[in-house]
């Protein structure tokens, strides 16, 4: 836990450049949930280093679009192409953080590293996430914002070219929002891609889609 890692966290974890030049192409996507059509005719192309912001009211399908890109939801129409990147090139951070209350913060990070096939870098990750001195604390005792920070760990542990973030700023304080901006900036600088939904303007976004807007 040195001053050095605090100052330049991105250099520590994220690669300088992703091996496969990534791109993401959404072509006239449509999504139906249950018997309802959420959206149709959504198209956008992202090149390496670009970030797409998804705006729209509750229920307009922001989360569903993210889940479609992650491959969880079937497409009612349209195509998604990733270029040469392998299918396992995605990180998805949703509302449900996937954290286990019975584990401590340190255990969570160590297990996360193993689950994502990465070396254990707990000691360096904790200060980066703003969770220093909390390694022994139970996840159950973390605040909502601290949980979100902890859930971001996998972004740094296993570098993947496409990040899907569902309302990443929710519950985060100013420092937490800066953390996301820093991580996103480093990721984009390395040629990564981001698709993020949000209710407020995202500083790192270069393109946007407004769902539910009258066509």
């Amino acid at each position: 836990m040195t001053e050095n890692t605090m100052a330049k966290p991105q250099k520590f974890f994220l690669p300088n450049a992703y091996p496969e030049p990534a791109f993401l192409k959404l072509e006239s996507l449509a999504c139906s949930r249950g018997l309802r059509l959420l959206f149709e005719g959504v198209s956008q192309t992202l090149k390496a280093g670009e970030a797409l912001a998804l705006y729209g009211a509750n229920g307009s399908g922001k989360t569903s679009l993210l889940r479609q890109i992650a491959g969880f939801l079937p497409l009612a129409a349209g195509t998604i192409s990733f270029g040469d990147t392998p299918p396992n090139a995605v990180h998805f951070i949703g509302h449900a953080d996937g954290l286990k209350n019975a584990l401590s913060v340190g255990e969570t990070l160590a297990l996360d590293a193993a689950l994502w096939g990465a070396p254990d870098t707990t000691t360096d990750l904790l200060p980066l996430l703003g969770l220093q001195n909390r390694a022994w604390q139970k996840v159950a005792d973390l605040s909502a914002g601290q949980r979100r920070r902890l859930a971001l760990a996998k972004l740094c542990l296993a570098p993947r070219p496409l990040w899907l973030l569902d309302e990443p700023m929710t519950a985060l304080d100013t420092a937490g929002q800066e953390l996301i901006d820093t991580l996103a900036g480093a990721h984009l600088a390395a040629g990564g891609l981001i698709v993020a939904s949000s209710h407020m303007p995202l500083a790192f976004a270069t393109k946007e889609i407004v769902l539910g807007a009258p066509a």
Binding site: H95, A96, L99
Partner: peptide, 14 residues
């Protein structure tokens, strides 16, 4: 795992 979102992550693991 379904309720806390881990199932989503299981889909994406290497």
């Amino acid at each position: 795992d379904y309720e806390d979102g881990s199932l989503d992550q299981m889909m994406l693991m290497p």
